[in-house]
């Protein structure tokens, strides 16, 4: 549903992600690359369309936000520089900000880390697990 609110929300997501969803050519390489594809209700390539169609409400409710691993395979491989992973990340941040509350506490981190944890995952975790 496109309303004035959803228009602002879509613009916000484009701004936070720093990507232009209109550049998408709907090739689906993001969805082909996504390791969490099966668990997602809205698939990575659909994320881009949801922002283009300004259906942010559905996006915010989507379980996919929390299944995205932030592995950024889609960001790396997107031939159009749309970077769907960054859109997922932006949508997640919008939801988190609306709900308020704290991000993951810094004290909880050391126990979660081992040598194999990529740095990117930590940064994403701060955004994702805010409880």
């Amino acid at each position: 549903m496109s309303t004035a609110n959803s228009k602002t929300a879509a613009a916000k997501i484009a701004e936070i992600s720093g990507t232009n969803p209109l550049k998408c050519m709907k090739c689906g390489k993001c969805s082909a690359s996504c390791p969490a594809f099966e668990k997602m209700d809205i698939k990575p390539h659909q994320f881009v369309s949801y922002v283009v169609n300004e259906d942010i409400e559905a996006l915010a409710k989507s379980e996919s936000l929390w299944y995205c691993l932030s592995c950024f395979a889609c960001v790396e491989r997107c031939p159009r520089d749309v970077k769907p992973g960054k859109i997922v990340d932006a949508a997640r941040q919008t939801v988190v900000r609306q709900k308020g509350g704290n991000y993951l506490s810094a004290n909880e981190i050391p126990a979660l880390i081992d040598d194999d944890v990529p740095q990117q995952l930590l940064v994403s975790a701060f955004r994702k697990f805010r409880r």
Binding site: C27, S31, A32, S33, R77, P79
Partner: peptide, 9 residues
């Protein structure tokens, strides 16, 4: 067999 969708890897 034509399948619409780019290959990831």
């Amino acid at each position: 067999n034509y399948v619409k969708g780019q290959v990831g890897k």
